[in-house]
Design a protein around this nucleic acid. Structure first.
Lengths: 145, 145
DNA sequence: CTCTGTGCAAAGGATTTGCACTACG
DNA sequence: CGTAGTGCAAATCCTTTGCACAGAG
């Protein structure tokens, strides 16, 4: 994500926080900024490491709690592949599509999906404010077949 | 799942195991049988409890390892919602669709999806043997909006 | 000033590992 | 018989909790 986009998204997220009555601490700013810069798809600990490069005083707990907060606000989403650490992905109105190998857990990404209508349908039926979606196909990659 | 279906699936799974050179131990039989009977969508520990009802000598590790093995064979799939224990779902050629609330983590299930063609497309492009898929929509439920 | 947010350390829960033993094929 | 599978206990990894202190509004 280029710097301009990062700053725009940073503003969005900061206003979203403030609107919900959350404060804009220095730690949170650094965490969010780092998350945007790295493009998402990172674990809590991975993010902590990156944040420490610009400010080693930020604690692990703050990262965890900030990520939880952003999840509650619907701005990011944790995804759990395998049993290891959760990965957080940016949910900028977007969708994510993974193709995962049952054998070696390799992840491929792709773009297409025809789920806009389904999303609308669900929004109506369940009275849900749909914010994004994730599609995962499972199978075996060429090597593991 | 009725008993007849369970037995049929049990046979399928047992042959799948044997074909890959895995043994058919008593513990594994009981674990697979229990998994089929309960219909899937259960945690490793939950499954262990159920298995213990028919045989308390089966160890926790065997359950974990059997589930891992079945995952590798593409017969079941772990899904991770929130950070708690993994849930395993039966992947009998099927697909699963969840609507998840970012606020309270409630999960709703639904049926429709138009992903058969996408699956085929991916199978060709990536040379993947697609076995199933999971769709998750994120948003806010009526209570959390 | 007040109350949310922070950071530390310790607790908690789920899963994995090491190793000797068992039993399938 | 040989090797894959088993079971136990301890270890590990990720995440949460409790609590006193700090800083945003």
């Amino acid at each position: 994500m280029d710097e301009q986009t990062v700053n725009a998204r940073l503003d969005d997220i900061q206003s979203a926080l403030q609107q919900k009555g959350h404060r804009l601490t220095r730690s949170r700013q650094k965490i969010v900024e780092t998350l945007l810069n790295c493009g998402g798809h990172i674990t809590a600990d991975g993010l902590l490491e990156l944040v420490h490069e610009i400010d080693p005083t930020v604690g692990r707990m703050t990262v965890y709690r900030t990520l939880e907060l952003l999840s509650e606000l619907g701005l990011i989403r944790p995804i759990y592949q395998g049993t290891g650490a959760a990965h957080y992905i940016l949910l900028d109105g977007g969708h994510h599509h993974h193709l995962i190998c049952s054998g070696c857990d390799a992840v491929f990404e792709f773009e297409e999906c025809g789920l806009q209508e389904v999303g609308q349908l669900l929004a109506e039926r369940f009275n849900f404010a749909v914010e994004g979606h994730l599609v995962e196909f499972y199978g075996r990659c060429p090597n593991c077949q």
